[in-house]
């Protein structure tokens, strides 16, 4: 029995995440309807346009249920736009994030598309060589609340101070960059471990049963 993982498929590069999970032997599902959250132990919110993804999450009534599932212990990972979507607050006026991890985030921190770049990144909890990190109109973590573990930072340059680009809190993971655009599956393996942890969590199983019953009764 492996953990069941869903990739939010409202918009963005969800297919690449599904492919990465496939490479490490994990079948995952495309999540387009809120009811599907009850079938999974972990959800990835992919890269895409954060404004669009937040808009679609509201449009298709995901917001309250997503929050309940995460509170009850479902694993969650936001990459790039996904990190913006799950943040507590943004330095920018738009969009309004969902507050699923206690971090403040700044969008397009490094500039517009012509300033997008790749770099090598050491990540706490990832053994071996540094990861090749692809930053595309990337956000960064500007401030962190309590219980947030910083996994990776980009060092200070003339243009900006040192900034966190990968953070973790419990079973919630957020990264500024796109591991799904490389062939390096190590972060996906780390997320599968978080989802496995969620699958084995008995408190969560009970909470989820209640949640599923509530959703069913309100439909």
């Amino acid at each position: 029995m492996r953990p069941r993982i869903g990739v939010l498929a409202l918009q963005g590069d969800f297919a690449e995440h599904i492919q990465m999970l496939d490479m490490i032997g994990i079948d995952s599902i495309e999540v387009r309807k809120v009811q599907q959250l009850s079938e999974i132990d972990g959800l990835i919110i992919p890269g895409g346009e954060s404004t669009t993804i937040v808009k679609l999450l509201h449009m298709f009534d995901f917001v309250d249920d997503l929050k309940s599932h995460v509170e009850s212990g479902m694993a969650l990972w936001g990459t790039c736009a996904g990190m913006i979507v799950i943040a507590r607050e943004l330095a920018d006026p738009y969009p309004t994030p969902l507050n699923l991890i206690d971090i403040g985030v700044a969008r397009n921190y490094f500039g517009r598309q012509v300033d997008s770049f790749e770099a090598e990144l050491n990540i706490n909890g990832i053994e071996g060589d540094p990861m090749r990190a692809v930053f595309i109109r990337a956000p960064i973590v500007q401030n962190t609340g309590e219980n947030i573990e910083t996994l990776a930072t980009v060092p200070a340059t003339d243009d900006h101070p040192e900034q966190a680009v990968a953070v973790k809190s419990g079973r919630v993971l957020a990264t500024s960059f796109h591991p799904e655009l490389t062939q390096d599956t190590r972060l996906h393996s780390l997320f599968v471990e978080l989802a496995e942890d969620a699958r084995l969590d008995e408190n969560r199983v009970n909470a989820k049963r209640r949640l599923t019953e509530e959703t069913a009764s309100t439909v």
Binding site: A9, L10, Q11, G12, D13, F14, A15, E16, G47, G48, E49, T52, C80, A81, Q113, V114, D115, S116, F117, E118, A119, E120, V134, F135, I136, R137, P155, H178, L181
Partner: peptide, 24 residues
């Protein structure tokens, strides 16, 4: 610092933005 400069505007970064637009 050992790297001269992070790579800007390379192929994966350019094509990568289009990946982010998918389904949109």
């Amino acid at each position: 610092k050992e790297m001269s400069k992070p790579e800007v505007g390379d192929w994966r970064v350019k094509g990568g933005l289009a990946q982010m637009l998918k389904g949109g």
